[in-house]
Design a protein around this nucleic acid. Sequence first.
DNA 1: AACTATACGGAGACAACCTCCGGTTCTACA
DNA 2: TGTAGAACCGGAGGTTGTCTCCGTATAGTT
Lengths: 210, 210
Amino acid sequence: MRADAQRNYDRLLEEAKQAFIVHGTEVPLEDIARHAGVGVGTLYRHFPDRYALMNAVFEQEVEQITEEALRLLNAEDPTQALASWLRAVALHSAMYRGLSAAIMEASDQRMPACKTRLRDAGGSLLWRAQQAGEVKPDLAIADLLKLTSALVVAAEKNQEDRGLFGRLMALVIDGIRTRPDADGTPHGPGPATSAEHGTAQAAAKSAGAR
Amino acid sequence: MRADAQRNYDRLLEEAKQAFIVHGTEVPLEDIARHAGVGVGTLYRHFPDRYALMNAVFEQEVEQITEEALRLLNAEDPTQALASWLRAVALHSAMYRGLSAAIMEASDQRMPACKTRLRDAGGSLLWRAQQAGEVKPDLAIADLLKLTSALVVAAEKNQEDRGLFGRLMALVIDGIRTRPDADGTPHGPGPATSAEHGTAQAAAKSAGAR
DNA sequence: AACTATACGGAGACAACCTCCGGTTCTACA
DNA sequence: TGTAGAACCGGAGGTTGTCTCCGTATAGTT
């Protein structure tokens, strides 16, 4: 890559990041080019479309999110760890208004950083929670991430309601847990066998209402 | 309203409905106008923007959804009834690709049919499930509808994955249920019955939930 | 220094949105 | 039935944003 090309690439990336943060990911690409001091042609050569640009910008966030996943693998409560990680993912995506919507829109190959790589990072966290018997075994990380993106989008459109994301995510986290109670439908292998991990909460109670 | 104006209004509405179903709600408004045999000016006079058009189209669906809610109020299982209703809402919104995204985007006054009216219809179903102690008492119908829209959007972007919506919604339904487990907070009035509509406690509760 | 592959830049084609206003049509009233 | 004028129509055109194309400029090589 020629030196001037590299220089322009870097400037565009940095400028795009700032523009996305300030104006959202739907900011006119011409603005980004202008602020970077290059023509639109240059921008489009380096980044064929808006998705490529978003993917490149988000790639840096993915770095951090992946580290966070590794860190959380050592946390005590596997489900809490998973929940924390999902919230982190949300936080990072929410930095760039509109990004989550784009993630939902784009195909897997189109934004690999936002989709494939994120899945790799989260898979082990989900797996651990499932092994502990705390989370439904028939649950895919891809679904969970799609759900998270959906929640971020919903929250973005309701900026006046600050607590929205938190409330919805809490609902979801409750929903992914294995249910100790019976309502006829036998899903999952019941409340774990063995596993010294804190399955105590699952073992306790029952009987409640209903 | 002048007769020709009424005629054009009706034609536009019908044409918009068809176009939305076939091409999604992001179809160019000029196409709708052309197919309806009028100029764009006429379209914009009757419907100031795309939202107005979508709202008008969806108003008819809301009619049916409301009836469905009333019907389900007599169903045996209150939670199942609520779940069924939410799925019905999803089904109706999904008829018009892009509508759910618009619903999330638009303010309450902008698409009253899709927001306010839907809330009225679903409120009682949620309330019943909460009274039965089956659903978390601190849950607002508005949140639940936002979540449903978010799920529909996610499903629309993943049309190849037919089961996605069903899986995610199942998760959510599990998440809104009261958890019999103990963490000290004794929530929910048990299997309780009693309580007529419109009591003071009901008013207080619904006020708090909104 | 000359050469060439590589990269630059921005004009312009295209697509949608929405407004504006001269011209047309309906209808109330005589 | 004729007519005045309020209500309505239509589409040209201003605006904004995307993306492509190609003549020009330049970095890197010999």
